[in-house]
């Protein structure tokens, strides 16, 4: 089967070479001690912690925002809500760094928010300074990856029996109670599948972190780029890449499991 052969040559073969290269120093001599050194290094541990923190925080944010938006779109619809849902959907196809660039104009030190606050309250320095931190990355990722939660949620909500909700309302249940007891149980599989997909994508995210360019916010993909391209330290890059790939594949397995449960 030619497609399989093509993929093997162009993807799996390079993948295997990354792992091999992790055990060889840049002159091609076997050197496993480097692995230990990298694993204990500050820059690696720092990047790992950053990656996991950002990923978990962004996924949590996506789940909350996605759930709220989906609930409103599905159960308190307004004229044009279908169009809005599709508009949010197209964010999936847009480049991720777009949001970061926009945030620079909105929340950057010379951005709209800071200028406005400085003008209004005659402040000497920009008061809002979260963009160049972990939280800037998290907020950008929430914007970018919320559609990945919204999509399966809306699909799940479209299957919820409207009659059931009306019956519950007639019986005097308050909206929050209906959400908790009727709607949420139907949404759990979609939340799990969407959430694990978000974890995977945020761990792998590169453009947003690169564009924010904050000194302290280095994640694993950014570290790989830095080591390979800027420092030409290929063995180090391959060691980190191997770990990053292992983490991603683990999350991918989780996602497939969740999606399989969902029947997707």
């Amino acid at each position: 089967m030619p497609p399989a052969a093509l993929l093997a040559l162009l993807f799996f073969y390079p993948l295997a070479l990354i792992i091999r290269q992790a055990f060889l120093d840049d002159s091609g001599v076997a050197n496993a001690a480097e692995i230990i050194r990298v694993l204990h290094s500050r820059f690696f541990l720092n990047a790992l912690v950053n990656t996991v923190t950002i990923s978990v925080a962004a996924t949590a944010g996506c789940l909350i925002v996605g759930l709220v938006l989906a609930l409103i779109l599905a159960f308190v619809p307004f004229p044009g809500s279908g169009f809005i849902a599709r508009l949010i959907d197209t964010f999936i196809a847009l480049p991720t760094f777009l949001v970061t660039l926009a945030f620079t104009f909105l929340y950057g030190s010379a951005g709209m928010l800071n200028s406005g606050l400085m003008e209004t309250f005659s402040l000497p320095a920009p008061p809002v300074d979260f963009l160049y931190s972990t939280w800037g990355v998290v907020l950008a990722e929430v914007t970018v990856y919320t559609p990945f939660i919204l999509r399966p949620l809306l699909a799940a909500f479209s299957l919820v029996d409207r009659g059931q909700i009306e019956a519950a309302s007639v019986l005097g249940a308050r909206p929050l109670r209906i959400v908790r007891q009727v709607i949420l149980p139907a949404a759990v599989p979609a939340l799990i599948a969407g959430g694990s997909l978000c974890l995977l994508l945020t761990v792998n995210e590169f453009g947003i972190v690169l564009f924010i360019g904050a000194k302290g916010v280095i994640t694993l993909p950014l570290l790989i780029y830095g080591k390979a391209i800027q420092e030409s330290a290929y063995q180090v890059a391959c060691i980190i890449a191997t770990i990053n790939i292992a983490l991603s594949l683990g999350l991918f397995g989780l996602y497939r499991l969740a999606a399989g449960r969902l029947g997707a």
């Binding site: 399989a4 993929l7 390079p14 993909p221 790989i224 990053n244 991918f252």
Partner: peptide, 25 residues
């Protein structure tokens, strides 16, 4: 099995895909 293998490239960080191609080619 093959279906899973075809999906794996979407799960690997793009930077690593680039790194792999650099190393291999």
């Amino acid at each position: 099995l093959l279906g899973l293998l075809f999906f794996i490239p979407s799960a690997v960080p793009s930077v690593s895909v680039g790194l792999g191609l650099l190393v291999a080619f």
